[in-house]
């Protein structure tokens, strides 16, 4: 198999995993509640509270809450789907198939992110129309570009997190802790300038931070185009870096899981 054929075959695996994850989600009533009912309630409450605020403040909160939703979906749905594979006994055949497990996990993450993003966009648009509260995006072109890079960056970040779930099901215990750490250090709900100075380097190495900054700047119009492009560059650099790290991480973690016999729930 040539390198180009392998890339094509791996992309096919990513899209197949994407399709399978979505099909499975749409047959699960709990997941449907999480992506339709719950976001509608949250969007309604958020926009009700923000109806008297200035427009760019409202969009800041909406984008921030969308980012938290995205990260929570990635962490919980993505992580739990790997644990679910372990419970159903499918992690073993996935792990020793010729296709890299990273391709499968990427497809699953893409499905989780797409699902979360579409649900949030639809819910906020629907509720804002009902309430007659327009959510104006200052720079739609840069906002759309930022969303695409955010999806890529979250997949790359999710690959690092996902590999930990493959190592051991006990990682689930730390899910809540991980959820809030990223909320805070990525500036989803408030600027990181409010945090102590020494925490800033942690924020800079997190792709969700650059994603949040780009999306906030593009949506509220509070940042220059140059600042948004800089965030894009950082998103691309860190996404590549994460992808490279995840390749080695998956290799060593899969070996460790085969040594420790943790691919199956005994």
């Amino acid at each position: 198999m040539t390198a180009w054929q392998r890339i094509k075959a791996n992309l096919r695996v990513v899209f197949m995993a994407f399709e399978i994850e979505l099909r499975q989600s749409f047959t699960d009533a709990f997941v449907l509640f999480g992506i339709i009912v719950q976001p509608t309630i949250v969007a309604f409450m958020a926009l009700w509270m923000l109806k008297d605020q200035v427009a760019n403040y409202a969009i800041f909160v909406v984008v921030g809450s969308a980012m938290t939703g995205l990260w929570t979906t990635l962490l919980f749905q993505g992580g739990n789907s790997i644990t679910g594979e372990r419970w159903t006994g499918t992690l073993e055949p996935l792990s020793c198939a010729p296709a890299p497990l990273r391709a499968v996990v990427s497809g699953k993450l893409l499905a989780n992110i797409t699902q979360s993003l579409l649900s949030l966009i639809c819910c906020y648009t629907f509720i804002s129309l009902i309430m007659g509260l327009p959510l104006t995006i200052a720079n739609p072109g840069l906002f759309a570009g930022s969303i695409v890079l955010t999806v890529v960056a979250f997949i790359a970040f999710g690959l690092i997190i996902g590999s930990l779930f493959i190592l051991n099901p006990d990682v689930q215990r730390f899910q809540n802790g991980l959820e809030f750490v990223v909320y805070i250090f990525s500036g989803f709900l408030f600027p990181i300038a409010l945090l102590p100075m020494w925490t800033t380097p942690f924020s800079y190495i997190l792709t969700p931070y650059w994603a949040a900054r780009a999306l906030h700047a593009a949506s509220s119009g509070t940042g220059s185009d140059g600042e948004i492009y800089f965030c894009w560059a950082m998103l691309i650099v860190f996404s590549i870096l994460y992808a490279i790290v995840s390749k080695f991480l998956f290799k060593s973690i899969l070996r460790k899981a085969r040594e420790d016999a943790t691919l199956n729930m005994q």
């Binding site: 075959a9 096919r12 695996v13 197949m16 399978i20 055949p93 010729p98 296709a99």
Partner: peptide
Amino acid sequence: DNLRYFASLYY
């Protein structure tokens, strides 16, 4: 669908 998925995993 089960078989389609695994077929892709086996290239």
